[in-house]
């Protein structure tokens, strides 16, 4: 990573966070959507407490949909408000993408911990292995941010960007859901701790691959020479 690339990434992250703090659109959407999903699930299981396995699946689904609905926004909004061209003029495509993906990581980690906390408090399930659970939320959030950022960046220029972002992101996130459920289930005390650790490594690997390869691929897509 050269200094100019790092400087551009920092500048983009700063711009994204400043814009987000002023509009609060992404955080509100992610929070509201996730919170409503959690409430609906808690309401649905009102009569009987969900088992840790079901609870892990419910939380994972809430986080996945929250990510798919909100995270592509950082990419798509540039296209919608017409500022994508300014971004192309000013920044290296890979730096612009990576800055935005990092912002998504911050946003998703924040949303995951808030939603995870609210969910656990509401369904009153004990967290048997807190470290695995917290690391599960963290790696799941990073993997979701990596996958959805990539898909959001791909659909820039499409007529039906939002729907298309969901269509291309959801199948790509299935391995994340699969691993996320195992990790969270292990955190809630179901199954072996080793299964949880393996899925944590796999989730971290998925996040790492998408965050590392994403800028290279998106640079090729966004570049116009």
């Amino acid at each position: 990573m050269n200094s100019s690339w790092g400087r551009q990434v920092r500048a983009i992250v700063g711009k994204e966070l400043r814009t987000e703090l002023r509009s609060k659109h992404g955080l509100f959407t992610a929070g509201l959507f996730g919170f409503l999903t959690v409430i609906a699930m808690v309401f649905a299981s009102y009569a009987e407490k969900p088992s840790p396995s079901v609870a892990a699946g419910m939380l994972c689904v809430a986080l996945v949909f929250s990510a798919v609905v909100t995270l592509p926004r950082t990419m798509i909004v540039e296209d919608e408000q017409g500022t994508f061209e300014v971004l192309q003029l000013l920044a290296e495509p890979s730096a612009a993408y990576f800055g935005k993906a990092l912002t998504n990581c911050v946003q998703m980690v924040f949303a995951s911990f808030v939603l995870g906390g609210v969910f656990i408090a509401m369904v009153e399930i004990p967290v048997a292995r807190p470290v695995v659970f917290v690391l599960g939320l963290l790696t799941l959030a990073l993997a979701l941010a990596g996958g959805t950022s990539f898909c959001g960046a791909l659909v820039i220029g499409a007529t039906n960007r939002w729907m298309l972002a969901g269509v291309v992101a959801l199948p790509l996130l299935v391995p994340v859901v699969f691993l996320g459920v195992i990790a969270l289930r292990s955190g809630l005390g179901v199954g072996f701790e080793s299964a949880g650790s393996e899925s944590l490594v796999a989730l971290a690997g998925y996040a790492l691959v998408t965050l590392a390869a994403g800028p290279q691929l998106i640079a090729l897509v966004w570049r116009n020479d």
């Binding site: 791909l154 659909v155 820039i156 220029g157 499409a158 007529t159 039906n160 960007r161 298309l164 269509v167 291309v168 691929l217 998106i218 090729l220 897509v221």
Partner: peptide, 20 residues
């Protein structure tokens, strides 16, 4: 297939489909 069909600019569609 949907990604390719969703982008009207054929160069964008080609690049996005390839990356996907």
């Amino acid at each position: 297939v949907a990604l390719r069909a969703g982008l009207s600019d054929e160069q964008k569609a080609a690049k996005a489909s390839a990356a996907y």
